[in-house]
Nucleic acid binder design. Structure first.
Lengths: 191, 191, 191, 191
DNA sequence: CGCTAACCGAGACGGTACGTCCCGTCTTTAC
DNA sequence: GTAAAGACGGGACGTACCGTCTCGGTTAGCG
């Protein structure tokens, strides 16, 4: 019958350990400065084991970053609370993701990598689209419920809101704290 | 009078050529992949001349990027036209800067570098603050003239607008074209 | 049994090839002008392989020169012939060693290096002591057999004879040919 | 008449200082490790001044070493004392020259350099011939005076004696002290 | 004296070799 | 058959000198 060979549990174990180590390394040292040797050492693994599973450095980095996307969604309970509360919750999740390790250090690196590599760019776009879809949905619901003005375009609004958080976190010295979030939601979705 | 001694004309000549070459290299290959050897070759200069002026790769990159900031402001003529037109003009300049070489490739790299180096971070913050100030001023003027609703907070609005352009350019597959700009200005500054 | 682990056959192969190449390089260009890059090229080996086995240029040179000392002794058959013939044979071996490559170019370099480095000095002293011992022994035997005057001090005589060959080969324009050897043996060991 | 311009005293002053510094440098660091920069610094002179007078490193070294030969002969008073005393005196001068700075470090370096450069070789041969001639003359006189056996060939004997001192000083761990000199003179010139 | 030509120091320049670090490939042995 | 260990060829790094060059400032010796 199905002789699907179980592919040796050690393999999967190694892959996991290496990916985790790669994320740590990436968060600490960024794209440049990322050393295969350090990753192997972190993972308690021989250098050749890394090369057995990924053909080269960039492939490992890409793969490791991809695992970020599969991390569990914070899960906002849309059933209870107002649309505005949901929006602020999603934005504060985003703000925290941009501030805390390890994602905080990976997003900028991803943005940079995206500039020079089409596959990274696609990955980044897919990732952010997925994150932003929740936000767009919530805004759409808010408009439908009459909580936000009918003139609001959910797509544009979610870009403005996400962009505001990004910009505030990455390009200014001030944090995207709850006061800022309140202000920017007022500004974009009306008061 | 001021007998300011010109130290050696060759020095300034070399520095300029190297900085220009470094920006090109940076735009093409990013932070990783940046090779001093290529820069020297581009600049038509010996490798040692580069090291004579900058102690190491990162210092050269930092210095070269800094020259970006000193590039002349596009200069929007605020005297004529409506505040809304000014806002859209500034945003389209930003969008173009994020799309065209060489700045397009440098900003993402700067964002990345900022994640791992405080001095780069300060540089980036200073740079974006300077750019955004023009936008904030124009919005303030528009509010004063009654062109934008009095509820608009210029500071928050300029972050939302800049962030929207950034996000659209860097994190999505769609360009920050004039249609998008119109929409997002509608959204943030009212219609 | 002895499960003495052979570490890796490639290592010994590389070491041999590099040492041989280093001796050639040394003989051709001397201490100054000795370039690791040339040695690696001669040996058909990557530059880093050289540094993997020797920490720096001087260590490689020292090691390569040491292999000279392990080269097989010419092996003079003491059983047949007179003591005088043995003496002349040993001296002509020495003279030839000082004239022919590769040793010819290494001894002067060793003498020079010995002036600036104690370990080279010890090496040189050990090397020459070993070579000279055969000569001293043969002279001692010749004195015992009554072939040389009893007033001859074998130690002093062997220094005078070896020194004469060295001096003639290195410090004068004339070669230490067989005529010279005959004369100097006459002079030192009597006629 | 001849308006032979005095060639600017600064030039001669610089040359002297540089030559002296070059000898010191040579004695300290040998042929390899000889740095033009160090010489200039020792001489309190700009690096370019060195290059103004000597086209390259090796020319400076050669020139500096040549000044050694012009150093005043110790001057043995042949009028008084026996031939044997004169011989021992000359040999002890040679032994001291091979032991004390700066010559001690230059001779080995010269021997080495002679191996790779014909002009150095000629220089060395000329130098040693000049030194040895005094010795040969004294031996000849001693033979003529009946102080040494008529069988002594002055040329061969002076090579054996000089060679013995060289060998003892450079190739063994023992010094060419007065005891050794006595022994070797006994051995070569009879007792 | 004051001029002028030379010599000078300082140091930028294009090169080249160094010794270090890491890459991605490979070979060997242990489990 | 997979893993750890690590040798291998390769190539960029940042350092140290090389020998060449350009630059003003000083200085010797003539007018």
């Amino acid at each position: 019958m199905s002789s699907a060979r179980l592919p040796d549990p050690r393999i999967e174990h190694s892959r996991r350990a290496i990916c985790r180590a790669a994320l740590d390394e990436f968060a600490e040292t960024g794209y440049a400065g990322f050393r295969i040797e350090s990753v192997a050492a972190r993972a308690g693994v021989g250098r050749s084991t890394v090369y057995r599973h990924w053909p080269e450095k960039s492939a490992l980095i890409a793969d490791a970053l991809r695992t970020l996307h599969r991390q569990p969604d914070p899960g906002v309970d849309v059933a209870s609370g107002s649309a505005r509360q949901h929006v602020e919750l999603l934005l504060s999740h985003l703000a925290r993701a941009l501030t805390d390790s390890p994602v905080s250090a990976c997003i900028p690196a991803l943005i940079h990598a995206a500039g020079n590599d089409a596959s990274f760019r696609d990955e980044l776009h897919r990732f952010s689209a997925q994150r932003r879809r929740r936000l767009t949905d919530v805004i759409t619901a808010g408009v439908g419920a009459g909580e936000f003005p009918p003139t609001v375009d959910p797509e544009t609004a979610s870009v403005a809101l996400s962009g505001a958080v990004f910009y505030r976190s990455l390009m200014t010295a001030d944090p995207a704290d709850s006061g800022f979030l309140t202000d920017v939601v007022d500004e974009v979705l009306g008061r």
